[in-house]
Structure formats: structure tokens, C-alpha cells
């Protein structure tokens, strides 16, 4: 999905949240619910990006960690940690995924005037993973391009479709240049 498709010119409601010391946002239309931290089942052999599964009202849902593709530092979850449950297109189908958040802020409206150009240099983040950067209450807020991040992960996974084992540990870096 392109930036334009995800963030056309109109103002939109987003949920802002904190992760790895940064403020991020997801489109409210993609958000299904916000959950308290739940028991996570480890998936042996899965990369760090999607290392676990959770139960969301009887559905088995993959839990993804945006800190991996966005190269953020990992801090242990605090009392404000939450799981955002999102509807996203995955491999051509709508799917439910969970993502970690260190804390959830609020639903706010971001208009075109609040959006800034994405600098091509100087950011720590792979530019193709960033849909837009905006301002919210004096902070920079990053809108990650979630479909792009997941698509990138899925395309990288095709080479990984064998049995996991000790060797799988070396494949946990998502970065594919």
C-alpha cells in the first residue's frame, strides 16, 4: 500500500501510542481494540518481529513487535504496556494482528497541515516503513506504514519456509536491503 492510499489528503483520526521512546500512531480505522497485556505463546523458529501468539476473544492472533523493523531499543514492558489489535491486509487478505505498545495516549485528529515531509536522510528508520510524520502536542509523531512493514516481512519469509531449529536464530533480523 502506498503512503497516499494510507494517508490521503484528508484529516484522519489516529491513535497515538508510545513505543521504544518514540510517539507512533495508527489509523483509527485500522484499530479493533486495545488489550491489557495477555499471556504470549512463543512460536519457536519465528523471527523476533512476530515471535508470539495471543488469544483475542477466541481467535489466535500473531503479536508483532514494531521495534524490530523500526530499529528501536527494547525496554521491558511497564505497567502501562498494552496490545493494539489491528485489522491489516496480510498476503492479500484482511487479517487480525496485535502490536506491542509501551503506553497508549489518545485518539486525535491529524490534518494535512500537521504532516511533514519524510526526510530521506537523517532518520533512524528505513524510510519505506514510514507513511508520514506529523505533529501532535509538540511531539513528532510517526505513522508507520504497517502494510509495507508486514509485506516486507512476508516477502522475506519465503526463504525461511523450512523447519526452525537452532540455526533459525540467525535469521531474526528483518532487514532486507
Amino acid at each position: 500500500m502506498t503512503d497516499a492510499a494510507q494517508f490521503p489528503g484528508a484529516a484522519r483520526d489516529v491513535l497515538t501510542f508510545r513505543l521504544g521512546g518514540e510517539v507512533l500512531a495508527v489509523a483509527a480505522t485500522q484499530l479493533r481494540e486495545v488489550l491489557e497485556p495477555a499471556p504470549v505463546t512463543r512460536v519457536p523458529g519465528a523471527p523476533a518481529f512476530s515471535a508470539g501468539l495471543i488469544n483475542v476473544r477466541g481467535a489466535v492472533v500473531p503479536l508483532a513487535d514494531l521495534r524490530v523493523p523500526l530499529r528501536m531499543r527494547h525496554t521491558p514492558p511497564g505497567p502501562d504496556a498494552r496490545i493494539l489489535v489491528l485489522d491489516l491486509p496480510l498476503a492479500g487478505q484482511q487479517a487480525i494482528v496485535g502490536i506491542h505498545a509501551d503506553a497508549v495516549h489518545e485518539v486525535t485528529r491529524i490534518g494535512p497541515a500537521d504532516l511533514e515531509d519524510i526526510p530521506t536522510v537523517g532518520t533512524r528508520w528505513p524510510p519505506r516503513f514510514v507513511a508520514a510524520i506529523g505533529r501532535w502536542g509538540g511531539h513528532f509523531v510517526t505513522l508507520p506504514d504497517l502494510p509495507a512493514i508486514f509485506a516486507d516481512f512476508l516477502s522475506g519469509q519465503s526463504g525461511r519456509s523450512h523447519l526452525p531449529g537452532p540455526t533459525a536464530a540467525g535469521q531474526q533480523d528483518l532487514e532486507i536491503s
Partner: peptide, 10 residues
């Protein structure tokens, strides 16, 4: 399993 994990054959 979702497409994120269906590649893991175990």
C-alpha cells in the same frame, strides 16, 4: 496460523 507464521512447517 496467519501468513506471518504459516511458513514455519513445524
Amino acid at each position: 496460523l496467519s501468513p506471518l507464521h504459516s511458513g514455519i512447517k513445524t
